[in-house]
C-alpha cells in the first residue's frame, strides 16, 4: 500500500531571511513537510509547473510580478492548492484583494504564532 507523500509547501519571498525564518518555524511545527523556495513570483509560477505544491506561503511586494498576481496564476491552474499571503503590506485593500480570490492573509513579522495561523489554514 502506498503511503501518501508528505505535504509540499512552497515558500515565496524575495527576502532570504524571511524564507529562512518560515523554513525554520515550519520545520519545527511540521517536521515531515517538504519545503521548496522561490525568490520571486515568476520563479514560483515556474516551480509550480514542475511539482504542484499542496500549500504556498506568498509574499506580496516583490520584484517582478506581485505576489497577488503570482497567487492568481497558480490558483487558476491549481485550484486545490491552498495559498497564504504572508506580507508586511497590511492595508485593507490588500486583505480584500486576497480574500476576494480565496487567499488567507497573515501579517508579517513572521513568528511562530503567524506560521501556526498559516498552518491551521492549510490543514483546515
Amino acid at each position: 500500500m502506498d503511503t501518501p507523500a508528505s505535504p509540499l509547501l512552497l515558500i515565496v519571498d524575495d527576502s532570504r531571511m524571511s524564507r529562512m525564518l518560515i523554513r525554520a518555524i515550519v520545520t519545527d511545527q511540521r517536521p515531515s513537510w517538504r519545503l521548496i523556495e522561490a525568490a520571486s513570483g515568476d520563479e514560483a509560477v515556474a516551480l509550480v509547473e514542475q511539482e504542484t505544491p499542496d500549500f504556498v506561503s506568498m509574499d506580496v511586494n516583490m520584484p517582478g510580478i506581485s505576489g497577488l498576481e503570482a497567487a492568481g496564476r497558480i490558483r487558476i491552474k491549481h485550484p486545490q492548492t491552498r495559498i497564504v499571503m504572508c506580507t508586511a503590506n497590511i492595508q485593507e485593500s490588500t486583505r480584500e484583494a486576497a480574500a476576494k480570490v480565496g487567499l488567507h492573509f497573515v501579517a508579517k513579522p513572521i513568528t511562530p504564532a503567524s506560521i501556526a495561523d498559516a498552518i491551521a489554514y492549510f490543514e483546515r
Binding site: I90, Q91, K108
Partner: peptide
C-alpha cells in the same frame, strides 16, 4: 525586511 514591515505599516 525589517524596513519592509515598517513601510507596510506606514502604507496602511
Amino acid at each position: 525586511e525589517i524596513f519592509n514591515i515598517g513601510v507596510g505599516r506606514a502604507a496602511s
